[in-house]
């Protein structure tokens, strides 16, 4: 009994001692570390350590604004093309978006390049992308799911650039068009594959070989600028060569658009079968007087050339 008490006491004392020793250890903690860099008071002469410049990136709400603007622009595109059926408005939207998303925002962020980030983020559990990028990537796809490729029409700055230089569209033979269109699949596959590879092979080729972003930034590697210029010169005669033959995001939009419920239609009930629309489409997206929606790039040229509803009709 007694021994028990004494053991308890000893244990308590030991515990207290332990704490005390600990406390002593704490007290011995050294709190004045050596400053290798001279401090203000050491330098004297009323010297003040200058602040290190830390330029902030664009604030987050501006990035969110970009997404909102993109959504609004797509909304306008859908409304203008499906309701107003007016090329003029599409043209205005194209110029505006080229100015904002292209030259002001310097072509970043774009859903085309996001393909790579999204594919990495979907497969690599340790890789996350900002919500803004997710939104930028999925919004056009969602719009395409319901209305078709409204993004391509007036919103995408790369498309807008090519859209505006198109002067004398040549008719690309159907077969050649199809064959060249296959390049996009290869490009998409290659880009995703490279993006998913580990370090030494890993690469984001879509961004690296973006032919037009150099123009937006007014800088870039000379070879890319020349390639971009070549695309633009080609684009004078062939409607949107990059979009139709290379753009990997176009492939995704095309797949999704196949499911779309609505989209551009050539006046299904009152059409003339005059074929003007078919001839006016620089992208070969009207076949047998019917819109091939996955290929339709929302440019509204068909409406403009239509004797029933274009400016020809309004002139009366």
């Amino acid at each position: 009994m007694k021994s028990r008490a004494s053991t308890l006491l000893a244990a308590a004392a030991g515990l207290i001692l332990l704490f005390a020793v600990n406390a002593a250890g704490q007290a011995m903690q050294y709190e004045r570390p050596v400053q290798a860099a001279p401090q203000e008071e050491g330098i004297g002469g009323s010297y003040k350590t200058p602040a290190v410049q830390k330029p902030q990136p664009r604030s987050y709400w501006l990035e969110v604004l970009d997404v909102v603007l993109m959504a609004v622009a797509m909304g306008i595109s859908v409304w203008v093309v499906l309701r107003r059926r007016s090329r003029k408005w599409v043209l205005a939207l194209t110029v505006a978006c080229l100015g904002y998303f292209g030259f002001y925002r310097e072509g970043c962020i774009c859903p085309i390049g996001s393909i790579q980030n999204v594919s990495v983020a979907l497969t690599d559990p340790g890789y996350a992308i900002p919500i803004v990028v997710t939104a930028v990537f999925f919004l056009p796809l969602l719009v395409a799911l319901f209305f078709g490729r409204a993004f391509c029409g007036g919103v995408c700055p790369l498309g807008a650039l090519q859209e505006l230089v198109l002067l004398k569209p040549l008719r690309v033979p159907r077969r050649l068009d199809r064959a060249l269109g296959l390049l996009r699949y290869a490009y998409l596959g290659g880009a995703v594959w490279l993006a998913l590879q580990p370090f030494p092979v890993h690469d984001f080729i879509i961004c690296r070989f973006d032919p037009f972003v150099g123009f937006f930034r007014m800088a870039g590697f000379a070879h890319m600028l020349y390639i971009g210029a070549a695309f633009l010169v080609l684009g004078i005669f062939v409607g949107r060569p990059y979009c139709r033959f290379l753009c990997p995001y176009g492939v995704l939009l095309e797949w999704v658009t196949r499911l779309a419920g609505r989209g551009v239609s050539i006046t299904p009930d009152k059409e003339l079968d005059c074929g003007l629309c078919q001839e006016s489409c620089p992208y070969g997206a009207i076949e047998k007087m019917r819109v091939v929606r996955p290929k339709c790039l929302y440019c509204a040229r068909c409406f403009e050339s239509c004797p029933r509803e274009g400016p020809l009709a309004r002139k009366r």
Binding site: A36, A37, P38, G42
Partner: peptide, 10 residues
């Protein structure tokens, strides 16, 4: 003037 040795080494 330097209020001590200059010891960037610490």
């Amino acid at each position: 003037r330097m209020k001590g040795f200059l010891i960037p080494n610490g």
